[in-house]
Simulated scan of single mutants.
Amino acid sequence: MSRKEGGSMIKDYSFKCSVATYIVSYIEYKQKSGRHVETIFYTMLTFDRFLQEMQYTKEYVDKDIIDAWLDSMKNLSCATYYRKVLEIRRFLYYMSRLGVDNYIPPKPPSRHKEHPPYIFTHDEMDRIFSSCDSLRLKNFYPRSLMIAVPAYIRLLYSTAIRTSEALSINNGDVDFSRHVILLRQTKNGSQRLVPLNPSMEKVLKEYIAYRDRMPIKGLCDSHSPLFVNLVGKRCDRGSMGHVFRRVLTDAGISLADHGKGPSLHSLRYTACIHSFVKMFRAGKSLYCSLPILSSFMGHRKVFDTEYYLRLTQEMFPELNVMDLNVTNCINEIVKQSLNPCKYNNS
């Protein structure tokens, strides 16, 4: 079955388990909410097949079948397990809102707690950029995406956008006159604007100028992808990840096993942490920086950004002492405002 989007995927496959009606309505609900439902569809597809294999006939989801499903996924990677459980939890909550009494499994431990993300140093980032600029093709490979790698890596670090968000950008989404990029396909399902600094604009303009030399019809169209391979097709995340591992090797940065080492997503973490430190050293309190970083990262809630704050405090403990000097002064002012008589008498 081809990986089609939206309703066509549902028509291509007939869900047959005992809660199939709810699965179809859940996917349609997500699609009408503006979500890209491809990942949701394939998660629900595997859940549907599991229920069929278990010959489950109840029109609600009980604890025994959920426990059996969780046990069947014990060999999956932590990231895949986490993603699937969260999606099924959302589905079960959806059924509950429709009046179905389900068992909802507890939320699994955050992946962040198992493997702390890799944060590149400024020196490592310089080596990564140098390695990107030194990439060369030994043999002609039509689907090579090396032409896009230097600009793509710099965009991830400059804007802290997600890898999939960067690859979804079309030419028409880049507005140099307003110095922004419009992200249409985001993790949260909502569009947002990402600012471009002058140096990043220069990089993108140079990349586009070189890219447009390729004699490919429609390459410059507004609806065509920004980052393409040598045949004008949109770059994919898997191929970008493969090239990035080569970049890291050339830059002398070791690759750990089992997903614990650096990856493309590490650039997003790195951009946030470096921005935190830069703002603090410019005189801003860590906690006062949270709303700014939350908007920068595209988080819906400030609480989602607190993880990065804790990570910054762990990596740069000296900032806690410096921040304490600032917050102590603020606390003293608050105490005086709450107890004016005490301080006036003294």
Rank of each mutant, 00 (worst) to 15 (best):
E114T: 02
I27K: 12
R83C: 08
L51H: 14
I40Q: 08
Y94D: 07
Y29T: 15
R49K: 15
E114I: 04
P108S: 00
G34K: 04
E87N: 02
T80K: 08
H36S: 13
R49E: 15
I40F: 02
S25C: 07
M44D: 06
D48Y: 03
H115M: 04
N102Q: 00
S96H: 02
N102A: 01
F91H: 01
K84E: 02
V85D: 00
Y26L: 11
N75I: 07
D48L: 11
E114M: 01
G99E: 03
R97K: 09
T80F: 05
L70T: 14
R83G: 07
H115K: 07
H36R: 08
K63H: 03
E59W: 07
D71N: 13
Y56F: 15
R111Q: 03
M44L: 15
Y93C: 11
I40W: 04
P105D: 00
R83M: 02
Y29F: 14
S96L: 05
E53V: 10
F47Q: 10
K84D: 04
D64N: 09
K63Y: 00
M73Y: 01
F41H: 15
I88K: 02
S110V: 03
Y29I: 14
K30L: 05
E59I: 12
Q55H: 15
D71S: 14
I27P: 12
V61H: 01
L45C: 14
F50R: 06
P105W: 01
R90M: 08
M44E: 06
S96M: 07
Q31E: 15
L51V: 13
T39D: 10
N75V: 09
Q52Y: 05
S25N: 09
I66V: 06
K74Y: 11
D67T: 12
H115L: 04
R49I: 13
A79M: 07
G99D: 06
R111A: 08
S25G: 10
Y93G: 12
R90P: 00
A79P: 00
P105A: 03
C78P: 04
R35G: 03
